[in-house]
Write a protein that binds this DNA or RNA. Structure first.
Lengths: 297, 297
DNA sequence: ACGATCGTGAAGTCACGGTTAACGATCCGG
DNA sequence: CCGGATCGTTAACCGTGACTTCACGATCGT
């Protein structure tokens, strides 16, 4: 029987008529698409695409295969969507998680508003460690996550920005930067930046741990931390520095870490994330509440 | 999106209403079914089955999910079947492989008859090494394989028995058995039996390399060989013995190996194998030719 | 109360879905 | 007609998650 990745590879190539673009859309390498299509063709016994290195077109068998397969596969998707929809009406539980810092605080307000409107839906709020965020979303452990942007992942949707806050640099108290009133991004060229867990999206890691300053000077990278507390401990121990949002000043005051404003850094943006195929009534409702709360301070 | 194994696990449990039987049908462990269903339920957000350790029944969401999913998934299967059918009309190529010994000889006759009837279909015959047999069938490298029975694999179909031949024991020429006129299966208790590649089906390996004699005495097992020639070389080198069909006397005569009849062993049976989802017109036609040739010697 | 049956959870293993890199073919502009 | 650009294919290697095994607790019948 056909594997999901075979079906999606075939349908993507059939639509794009281009291995490279199909690969890009599915977020895999072109080589993988080529291998998958070839295996499929060996099983079917005849080429599904007539192709040179310059042109790709459906063969007659391929065209018929697409006509049969696409609606069938769409219906499989619909079956899941409907199950998720009905399985998650407003009656039930909405599971939301947040990471570190200001997350929890913001959620309290949103949850209050949401509960008021949908008293039949119970809301569970949990803290996720940085490394757990994406796995939890992917595996359905939670329906929504409050996190920092940008998150550019396939099948994960980002809501609007709910909160923007200034960026600070967390440095050891003894560090030469600790006494400064403000720092520039350019100053990062002189320090070691601690890393984020590699389960986090590449887009987010690129934003929080850039490799070069705007003027092109390279930024050194240090070890990665799995949790936010771990990160601060490493900063306190002098292993490196890290950019954080202004709210950590209220929630993570420590004797060994100082927070210095990065005056020319763009603000740190927070918002909700959810699985594209779990955009249920509850999720939409919670988003609505969050948006309103953010727009009417 | 849903993975193939998730879809099949859900549909199997929905039909059997029993994790154990569903697992058995899909040839996986019960634990795997349990894990898969649980993950599915976390994504949907609500149980698909109401279950205790004694009873399993579909929840309302589960019932609806099955109603939507089963026809959709069936249509995916149909799409593949049709592609395979049309991709493999009589016009085209039929790829057949055989393993060792008498295989090739038998196929010559069948192929002649098949070509006579379907001159528009070209036939390619290749030898497969023992270890390659199942992978080739599974991956669609060949459409048909001539091999020894019993082959009890999911999604592989066995045709009727085409040839039966007496079993011989291949032993080193210097071995005490080499001079005997005949041996009994019970004699295997005193020797080391060489093994078959572990890509071959368990059913076949159990038949060719049993672990106990009929009377219950255990049979020692030795190393495994990947090819038939390798097997005979190991026999010649005194590493162990192996049961073969009578036809090897004609095709694999060697100075270092003697073949002694196993008078009380059931005959070795040969027949064709093919993928259940590749039972095309060509495959059926070749089978027909084979059956006729076998029944009218 | 006991054994039998069954689903679940944790821990460990390995096939296979995936990558990277080098390559050969096709087409285009100069 | 050549050099470069684009694209699909292939080989070799790698890490993850689909699997297994094992131990356990729950739920029946007798």
């Amino acid at each position: 029987m056909l594997e999901r990745h075979e079906i999606e590879a075939f349908l993507a190539v059939a639509e794009e008529l281009h291995f490279g673009r199909a690969a890009e859309r599915l977020r895999v390498s072109t080589a993988r698409i080529s291998q998958t299509i070839r295996k499929l063709e060996r099983r079917v016994g005849v080429p599904l695409f007539n192709r040179t290195s310059r042109r790709v077109e459906l063969s007659s068998v391929g065209r018929r295969f697409e006509e049969d397969l696409r609606p069938a596969w769409d219906r499989v998707g619909d079956a899941l969507t409907r199950a998720v929809e009905t399985g998650r009406g407003f009656a039930g539980t909405l599971r939301v998680c947040f990471t570190g810092a200001a997350g929890g605080q913001l959620l309290v307000g949103v949850t209050e508003l949401f509960r008021e409107r949908h008293p039949e839906c119970s809301v569970e709020i949990r803290e996720a460690q940085m490394a757990e965020l994406m796995p939890w979303l992917r595996d359905g452990v939670v329906d929504l996550a409050l996190a920092t942007f940008p998150v550019d992942e396939p099948s994960i949707v980002s809501g609007p920005v709910l909160v923007s806050e200034a960026r600070l640099l967390a440095v050891p108290v003894g560090h030469r930067f600790a006494a400064r009133d403000a720092l520039s991004i350019e100053d990062l060229a002189g320090v070691t930046l601690l890393g984020l867990p590699d389960t986090l999206p590449e887009s987010l890691r690129a934003d929080r741990t850039p490799t070069v300053t705007p003027s092109g000077r390279t930024i050194r990278h240090g070890r990665s931390a799995a949790t936010f507390q771990e990160m601060l401990t490493m900063v306190g121990a002098g292993e490196g520095v890290f950019t954080v949002g202004a709210s950590v000043r209220r929630y993570y005051t420590r004797p060994d870490v100082a927070y210095v404003p990065l005056h020319d850094a763009p603000p740190l943006q927070w918002g909700l994330l959810w699985r594209a195929d779990s955009a249920t009534a509850r999720v939409r409702g919670f988003n609505e509440a969050a948006r309103e709360l953010a727009s009417t301070p």
